[in-house]
Amino acid sequence: MGDHLARAEDFENKAEKKLSGWGLFGSKFEDAADLFDKSANSYKLAKSWDKAGSTYIKLANCNLKLESKHEAAQAYVDAAHCYKKTNINESVSCLDNAVNIFCEIGRLSMAARYLKEIAELYESEQNIEQAVVYYEKSADFYENEEVNTSANQCKQKVAQFSAQLEQYQRSIEIYEDIARQSLSNNLLKYGVKGHLLNAGICQLCKDDVIAITNALERYQDLDPTFSGTREYRLLADIAAAIDEEDVGKFTEVIKEFDSMTPLDSWKTTLLLRVKEKLKAKELEEDDLT
């Protein structure tokens, strides 16, 4: 480990010397870039992540001087991957730089990929608002490049987090849009009822029985087979329970569905919100009487 560290520092010092010296036709930047690359690799082997990251940034700057934009962007990505282990903010900053360069040189699919990576970093840090922003950007870029499945994955993340942030309408629109797209594709059509269920749960969270009923009718028009599914039955029964303000029935319906298809944490969270609202209504009724 110490051996790698010593070598890394040696390479870095040589690179710095090259940069401060004279060079013909920018060859000093080429030599320095080569040395910075070796130095960064040695730092990585020594598990000195911060130093490796800062060295990759120096390498990126050299590549920018040499007008090698692709290499510069890749160096920023490598720096981000080193910083990921120690400093998330630095990692995000490096990936942002890489994305800007990829956009400049027209590599939009690469830009989309790293925007998604930034979103994932924010997600791991529980910074949902920022995660949504970057997932949305990523989806936009993927859509421009016609990488529809990746775009849909990012959109689903946006919808999921929007619902958590109580932006239900936005979430509903995304899920319905994905369902509409999926219907015309033989491979994706089987996931339609899942998307419509998610949209329906978001409708339930809005606490408007008429809107829920209208949505269910709309979903039937969208996919004629939906009315025969357990998902449709779940939504219809919950809507009825909300209309009757019957918490017991609400619970029974969900338990029956869960016994067959276990609800994931996202659905459970949203349905608990619906239940809390329903309970509050019931208490209000009791207070009035």
Binding site: N185, G228, Y232, R233
Partner: peptide, 28 residues
């Protein structure tokens, strides 16, 4: 066939072959 744009389900619906009525009867 995977990416055909005309919605097969809609056509079946117009033909009266849709499984929607069966689905409605399933509301138990």
């Amino acid at each position: 066939p995977v990416r055909r744009k005309d919605n097969h389900l809609e056509q079946r619906d117009k033909l009266g072959l849709t499984s929607a009525p069966k689905g409605q009867s399933k509301l138990r």
